[in-house]
Amino acid sequence: MASGDGEGEGSVSGDIDDLESLISTTDVERLKRAWRQEKAAPEIFQFEAALIQRIKEQIQLMEETVEDFAESGIDPLTVSLYQMDLDRTQFLLRSYLRIRLQKIEKYMFHILNTDELFNRLSREEKSFAERCSNDLKMHLDENILSKLPDNYQSLLKQSIISEETDMVPKPQLDTFVVCKTKYYLGHIQLEDINNGNTDDRVNQRPLEEPFEMEPNVLYFVRYKPIKKLVEGGKIDLY
């Protein structure tokens, strides 16, 4: 019932080519980790389709087991222990899905306009994102955009002379996050070499600033430079 299974599909919990594969991890552990990552990161992660599917199945099986126990006269106090375990897992599942929905609601236009992000959504989340943004578009259109002069009716741009979509809320990738790694990580590039900043300040920074992370020590770091490592499962967020 508590069996763990490798994923192998490039998702956060699918990194099994190391020691972790020797230590059996329960799916609940994996769900907890996915939940924590999702909570702590500014951007939305790849949807853990296989993990969520397995969790749902395990929950269903357990619900049936609890019913059987209750009917077969097993001490209700013991049955309640199984119920508590079930409640905890269900909370994690709901919370995981909820956080993702909240992120979609918050950054809907940005996600829909960024393939990389849109492709991280589940099928149902994609539908939700589209419906959600249509609802909002319609609302903004009816009340404002359709009443504005020509050339000013764009949803995403202030006017047709805007060079980029300057009205879309985007997640702050420069947010600082708390993180930890299990294994030593060296040569993490912290500063953007070419972040488009023409500040003098940037020229003063050394080009190469390899930063290293010791295992099992907490760090506060800007999310952007470690984004790929987090997505690849090498860094955990707290």
């Binding site: 420069d174 996050v177 708390v178 506060f220 770091v221």
Partner: peptide, 28 residues
């Protein structure tokens, strides 16, 4: 760019998080 926090506990991290984040961000 980064600050390492040796031996801080979960609750302390949670409370400090917004402050450290803001201070570093402002500095950055």
């Amino acid at each position: 760019s980064a600050v390492r926090i040796k031996n801080l506990s979960a609750m302390e991290v949670n409370i400090v998080r917004p402050f450290v984040g803001r201070a570093l961000q402002a500095f950055y």
